[in-house]
């Protein structure tokens, strides 16, 4: 729109001025139509009610929530305590304290894990530990609700008490 020197819109300016208003209002109505469509079609709304749908909510199988040490029903795991995951971890969130076990028959001492410490607070879920594990002893679990009141609770011991290494895993 053009403004003449004395502050009055000239004729052409007035025409443009009105068409500007017309187009402006039209564009606003076009936008409102989209919103109106979703008000009248509530089935197209995709919101999930999160805490309410907790029972049915299933994460994808590859989702990386936390590191777990796989135990079978006899409380056996596959970790040999080789520390490959500890070396692969970029932030030092895995700490393996290994011990020694003496075989009563042969008298040879073998390395076993004493405690598998996992600092969840330092983990970036990069999956490098899982890739580095030679015996596939650890995996990423789907749990994602990690908030706790005390920071110390985020330091976890992954091997269950009394668990042993699966026979035959080296």
């Amino acid at each position: 729109m053009s403004l003449s020197a004395d502050g009055i819109y000239n004729f052409m300016g007035l025409k443009n001025y009105i068409s500007d208003i017309y187009n402006g209002v039209k564009s606003l109505i076009t936008g409102m139509k989209v919103t109106g469509h979703y008000i009248t079609h509530p089935k197209e709304i995709v919101t999930q009610q999160y805490p309410e749908n907790r029972d049915t909510l299933k994460m994808f199988e590859r989702f990386r929530g936390e590191v777990v040490l796989i135990h079978d029903e006899n409380n056996l795991h596959k970790c040999t305590g080789c520390s490959a995951c500890e070396l692969a971890c970029p932030n030092g969130s895995i700490e393996i304290i290994s011990g020694k076990e003496i075989d009563p028959e042969t008298g040879k001492s073998t390395k076993i894990i004493d405690t598998f410490v996992y600092h969840l607070s330092m983990c970036t879920f990069c999956n490098l530990c899982i890739l580095s594990c030679p015996t596939d002893a650890i995996k990423m679990a789907q749990g994602f609700e990690h908030s706790v009141f005390d920071r110390s609770k985020l330091t976890k011991v992954l091997n269950k008490p009394g668990s042993k290494i699966m026979p035959g895993v080296k």
């Binding site: 994460m59 994808f60 590859r62 989702f63 990386r64 970036t124 879920f125 990069c126 999956n127 890739l131 990423m140």
Partner: peptide
């Protein structure tokens, strides 16, 4: 999430290919 395992910080690449 289904293919790479994470929603934002995916870390799907490794030198030499994909994870």
């Amino acid at each position: 999430e289904e293919t790479c395992g994470a929603r934002l910080t995916m870390n799907y690449n490794v030198p030499g290919g994909v994870m």
